[in-house]
Design a protein around this nucleic acid. Structure first.
Lengths: 151, 151
DNA sequence: TTCAGTGCAAAAACTTTGCAGGAGG
DNA sequence: CCTCCTGCAAAGTTTTTGCACTGAA
């Protein structure tokens, strides 16, 4: 999916909801799509600041929320950390395996899980909006993981 | 699993980690185990205050953290809300279906998911510590859910 | 006796809000 | 031209920390 296509999705959402089309929103959209996976609002704000893209922190927070609403981004909360975002649009459903020591995150796909989630929603007469599955574990990567001696 | 058994698990954990055995910790343990599912630190603090069990907010936060470390409780973060806890010890693994409008939470078990998680850990050479799966959806309960007209 | 735990308040961390000025429709 | 958006700072929320005192070992 190209940036232009995603941008058009965003524009459509903004128009449908009587939000205005502003340059700041596109700057943030572009910056967010260029982030590594799983960034948070403040990281994006600082990255943009570093790139001389001066938008305010408040605008970053608000725009990330808009981008979640129209499903360009997904929100995640990994164990009490601040809210983290990742690109959702154009990606297959996937899940996260997280090392509790070094915070390394491994993504995995598992279509069977989608089927289970669909079934659960159907059984309970719910309409799915989003989902997240996090497996917290200890990795065995001696190079990056400091606390794995006692596994 | 009885309260005494859980208490002994807690005592064993405290001793193993050179933490002291205090009355406050048992008050909080008891209060936490008597909470409805999915309480947060402040709710527990206020509940205890209301019951004339005077422990400080800071102690509640610290003790809940200890109880998570020794797997008496599990932490959950539902979409940027404050950290919520639920009893883990003596319970089967289970997952959460959450209404994004009225915040109703339905728990479900699905042993197949445990198998998938075990496989993922094994494939990546990780040792599982904890897991959480949340399905965000819209319910169709007209009585309790205000915003379900547009589903 | 010693040092971790407690309670309190203050600080920190993260996010939202109010307001004045500016720009989109 | 009327609002909504922006940027800033201030306030709000949730959680952690510093410190003096207390109490477990």
């Amino acid at each position: 999916m190209t940036f232009e296509e995603i941008k058009n999705t965003f524009i459509a959402y903004l128009k449908d909801n009587a939000h205005r089309i502003t340059n700041e929103r596109f700057l943030i959209l572009n910056a967010a799509l260029n982030m590594e996976e799983h960034f948070d609002a403040d990281e994006l704000y600082l990255k943009m600041k570093n790139d001389y893209l001066n938008v305010s922190r408040a605008t970053v927070y608000k725009t990330l929320e808009l981008m979640s609403e129209c499903e360009i981004l997904t929100k995640h909360n990994f164990k009490g950390d601040r809210t983290r975002y990742e690109t959702k649009i154009g990606r297959k459903p996937h899940y996260h395996l997280i090392c509790v020591n070094c915070n390394k995150i491994i993504e995995f796909e598992y279509p069977q899980i989608e089927k289970i989630q669909d079934k659960i929603c159907k059984d309970n007469n719910f309409k799915m909006v989003d989902h997240t599955l996090q497996v917290f574990a200890k990795c065995n990567d001696e190079k990056t993981c400091k606390n794995n001696s006692g596994n």
